[in-house]
Design a protein around this nucleic acid. Structure first.
Lengths: 211, 211
DNA sequence: TTGATGATTAGAGTAACTCCAATTATAATG
DNA sequence: CATTATAATTGGAGTTACTCTAATCATCAA
């Protein structure tokens, strides 16, 4: 059994795959912007990229995923993880938000277009839910770990979901106003509104005293 | 042009339609319980009810709707509307919750089975989102009216969504514990947790003074 | 150069829907 | 009761997203 050496990140194959992936997504978005989501078929997208429909499904498990896939999600996750473990969660969240602010400003147009799709196309809107739940699982797990509670702690899950919904509603509000104004500021407003920070802090602080 | 007289509620046609509708839903649920959602086809359901697949789509716009359609939603809506307009919203919500409590207890098994599907089947889970949004629109509209604010007021929408998510998480928690314990009590716990009542009250009280 | 491995593809199949035109059941009218 | 209007049911043809499989083709390691 020949040991497979660690695949080089920049190998021809890898680079090609990445290129194809990006092409598919770019062409898909272009067509969808032009004709609408429902009227754009996988066949059309594949034709535009000059690959077969089969190949499309090699890269994206469903049509929704092309629009849904978001490079920022993993970024946010990483930023959150990189925060010192003893930092209060509310502070961490605010930090991450500000750190993303620049990117959000820079990619404003792209983000706005995609957010609009998320909100306006029923199947995408519904599908977005899945992603929110993944976010909830991720954050809940993180807090659970740091606070020494169970991963499915009711209190944690409720609180985290509330925070996520605040961000979600902020996005909707931001889109409703055609992306005028700062997205980050809108999220901040929502967070202030639900006033969840204090609660998050009390959850996130490790139970040092009890230990 | 012959004026169509108001169709009698209990006319033969109406009764038949209702029966068919109920049969479809009952048989669908039975098959789905037995074989799982994905493995149950519309053809099978139609065959079990002895109608054509076309007829299925006359009654339910999609397969998801058969499982999703919930007799309690309109009930809750009606109960909420029936509360005196000057009653603080938090009180109204608690009232409605307690009023539904008996029904929830009585139909526990049915509700649990359906809730399980909602949570476990991805397409249903995603689709549930749509319903939550309808709920948000309804409640936001109600509060907006009573408080004299705009229908798409950001603060209202965020707060309402938070309350809905609390109920949603309560359902998940309740299902996670196999429906042991009171559903209403779990929702109460979630509501207490988010402590949103005070905020709701401040939103719901009409701005009598300012007027 | 060769042999393995991974990517691309065509093709056949499934199932949820949509649309439409034909048929059948119920209701209203003279 | 006979007739006409209306509503419900149906079959059939078509679209599209997606799955599975087996063959072909490109890249890579040796």
């Amino acid at each position: 059994m020949p040991k497979t050496i660690t695949p080089i990140a920049g190998s021809l194959r890898e680079r090609k795959k990445l290129k194809t992936r990006e092409s598919i997504q770019r062409e898909a978005m272009r067509l969808i912007q032009k004709q609408g989501y429902d009227k754009t078929t996988i066949e059309q997208i594949a034709a535009a990229v000059e690959v077969s429909p089969s190949t499309f499904f090699n890269y994206f498990p469903s049509k929704e995923d092309v629009v849904l896939y978001d490079a920022y999600d993993p970024m946010i996750g990483k930023l959150l993880l990189d925060r010192p473990a003893d930092e209060p969660l509310s502070v961490a969240i605010r930090h991450v938000l500000e750190e993303m602010g620049g990117i959000f400003e820079r990619d404003r147009e792209v983000i706005l277009a995609r957010a609009r799709l998320w909100i306006e196309v029923p199947s995408l809107r519904a599908r977005l839910w899945e992603e929110l739940e993944k976010g909830q699982d991720f954050m809940s797990g993180l807090i659970a770990q740091r606070s020494g509670r169970a991963a499915d702690d009711f209190e944690i899950r409720v609180t985290v979901m509330v925070v996520i919904m605040a961000a979600m509603e902020a996005m909707r509000e931001w889109v409703r106003h055609d992306g005028k104004g700062s997205f980050v500021a809108t999220v901040r407003r929502a967070l202030d509104l639900i006033d969840a920070q204090a609660r998050l802090d009390s959850l996130a602080s490790p139970d040092r005293e009890t230990r």
